[in-house]
Write a protein that binds this DNA or RNA. Structure first.
Length: 305
DNA sequence: GGCCAGGGGATTA
DNA sequence: TAATCCCATGGC
């Protein structure tokens, strides 16, 4: 295993548990030391956070790359490319402090939710991975979603050699690979009725232009992007919103699930059919981030932390 | 628009 | 152990 590490110093608003285990991404596993190991865009890594300023909550984020020495590229610039990749993936360029101040102004509920989930960040995941992951997530819960995604990657993804000490990791399966499969080929992944959605969606995305087509949705009008996603089998309003938020960087997207219906009713007295519209009106361009604070708060409030 | 299948593990009773 | 729930969608 390579010992190469990338460090980001004095990062604020960063809580590994809240970021990696809140249900926005499904490939990060907690280690005994509190760090997280996983794969993003074909890069296997271990990410840890060490507090350096207990007053501000700032600390150092350390990315330890997991790559067999033999397969490590040596080209110039790889280090800075990787650094840029992780900085973007972890959304370190965004000022969450400012967003929190905006969201909590004149909103006591949000103030409590933000205090509860002060270290939440939205990861910038690959659109394709987000699309497939959230199709799998439907009517499902996080531990099982993680198992499904892991089995899918092991069955259909490219092997990443982690070296003898780490074993192997797998990249997320490519669009063309899933598009070439039949539903039965995914039986070992135990996806249930979702297997059919995966294969059909993969074929449709491949025909539309693959990853490049998904990327075009980044800059499209939000309702156009949503409409395009809704045309894919297994994608409804909830999954589409998750892909927009977690895969396409659209912070205004507000996924409404069982928990968010409960939260909007309990906290704001809003009927579930009005949840999305009310959230858009109330939280505007940061509705998606507000959703994460509310989601985390609804699921953990009352429990000791 | 309301109802229900579909798969299966986790959680709760 | 049994019942219920789960970051929903599609089809009738």
């Amino acid at each position: 295993m390579s010992g190469d590490a990338i460090v980001f110093r004095n990062v604020e608003d960063f809580d590994a548990l809240q970021i990696f285990e809140c249900g926005q991404a499904f490939r990060w596993k907690r280690e005994n030391d509190g760090s997280h190991t996983g794969v993003a865009r074909g890069r296997a890594a271990n990410i840890s956070f060490a507090l350096t300023n207990s007053e501000s909550g700032a600390g150092d984020v350390k990315i330890r790359k997991i790559t067999a020495a033999a397969s490590r590229g040596e080209e110039d610039g790889e280090e800075s490319n990787d650094r840029r990749f992780w900085e973007h993936y972890l959304d370190l360029g965004r000022d969450y402090g400012e967003i929190k101040r905006t969201l909590t102004a004149e909103d006591a509920v949000m103030a409590r939710a933000v205090a509860h989930g002060a270290g939440i960040r939205i990861l910038n995941q690959e659109p394709w991975e987000a699309l497939i992951s959230f199709i799998i997530s439907q009517n499902n819960h996080i531990p099982r979603i993680m198992g499904c995604v892991e089995r899918l990657c092991a069955a259909c993804g490219a092997r990443i050699d982690g070296g003898a000490a780490c074993g192997d990791f797998f990249a997320f399966p490519r669009i063309e690979v899933l598009a070439g499969l039949s539903e039965g080929d995914l039986a070992s992944c135990r996806l249930g009725y979702r297997a059919e959605y995966l294969v059909k969606t993969a074929r449709k995305v491949a025909e539309a232009g693959g990853a490049a087509w998904l990327e075009t949705l980044r800059g499209a009008a939000i309702d156009e992007a949503e409409k395009a996603l809704l045309s894919l089998p297994g994608v409804g309003p909830k999954v589409a919103a998750c892909v927009l938020l977690f895969g396409l960087g659209r912070m205004e997207a507000f996924p409404v699930d069982v928990w968010m219906k409960r939260a909007m009713r309990a906290f704001y007295g809003v009927d579930e059919k009005d949840a999305a519209a009310r959230a858009a009106a109330r939280f505007g361009p940061y509705a998606g981030i507000a959703q994460q604070y509310l989601f985390h708060y609804m699921r953990t409030a009352g429990r000791a932390e």
